[in-house]
């Protein structure tokens, strides 16, 4: 199962994902995917440097599922919610399926 590295941006706290090339994106689709322990460690090393550079905080890897169409989905409910950046102000019923 592939993994991506996520964090919160230091200055505004927004959820971000480490992209190929070392940038950070709010969009999970842009995240760099790591297969296997070594690739995860390599991404984490890049992320740790970003922590030292005060770009992000609260860094960790998380497993994702790659769907048939190539898009990625977080495995856990928590990460699905984080990835959605959703607010709950709207008057609605379930807008993220349970």
């Amino acid at each position: 199962m592939p993994s991506v590295v996520t964090a919160n941006r230091l200055d505004d706290g927004i959820v971000v994902y480490l992209a190929p090339g070392g940038g950070w994106s709010e969009n999970l689709a842009d995240a760099a995917r790591a297969e296997g322990e070594d690739e995860v460690k390599a991404l984490e090393a890049v992320a740790d440097a970003a922590v030292r550079d005060r770009l992000v905080i609260s860094v960790y890897p998380m497993p994702v599922e790659v769907k048939d169409d190539g898009t990625v989905d977080p495995i856990s409910v928590r990460e699905r919610i984080r990835a959605s950046h959703r607010t709950t102000l709207t008057k609605d019923w379930y807008d993220v399926p349970l």
């Binding site: 919160n8 505004d12 706290g13 927004i14 928590r78 919610i81 984080r82 950046h85």
Partner: peptide, 16 residues
Amino acid sequence: RPLRLRNGVYLQLHAY
């Protein structure tokens, strides 16, 4: 972290 918490600032799921 302890300084921000003393001022009511948490890091939550989506943001501060």
